[in-house]
């Protein structure tokens, strides 16, 4: 991926497709802003992932509901639609906590996906 031109920029990993077009459109196609925002994403998401894992250990459905709700827009901005939909599913299931096994499975998968996304983004950042 090239951060220094205006061409459509996307990367396919095994689980995620991220696309920087929307992010670019928000910041007026300014490369410095794009880099800053990716750096911010990489700073925030690992912490959010940790909160999800801690909440899962404690079966804290309220926190799971809140964090999964909170990260959806960020995922959407980077075009991570599949991951966003997983977060949406967790948000919905965690409202009641009724399907615990499904929640656990989804949260584990979400955390793995977030790891993969961050890894991909870091790789791209190193190329800058």
């Amino acid at each position: 991926m090239n951060f220094n031109n205006n061409k459509k920029t996307s990367v396919m990993s095994e689980t995620n497709l991220f696309n920087l077009d929307k992010l670019r459109s928000y910041v007026g196609n300014n490369n410095a802003d794009v880099k800053d925002m990716i750096a911010l994403f990489l700073e925030i998401i690992p912490a959010q992932k940790q909160k999800l894992q801690n909440a899962l250990k404690k079966s804290d459905w309220g926190t799971l509901n809140y964090i999964s709700h909170q990260i959806k827009p960020s995922l959407d901005i980077l075009g991570l639609n599949a991951t966003k939909e997983k977060a949406r599913a967790i948000e919905s299931l965690a409202k009641t906590g009724n399907e615990e096994e499904v929640i656990r499975k989804f949260v584990t998968e979400l955390c793995q996906e977030l790891d993969a996304i961050c890894k991909n983004l870091r790789t791209e950042m190193e190329k800058l």
């Binding site: 928000y26 910041v27 925002m37 909170q70 901005i77």
Partner: peptide, 16 residues
């Protein structure tokens, strides 16, 4: 905005 990423994004967008 409680999501720092989304909040910062809106801030930068409106500051254009």
């Amino acid at each position: 905005e409680d999501d720092p990423f989304y909040g910062e994004l809106l801030r930068r967008h409106l500051a254009l």
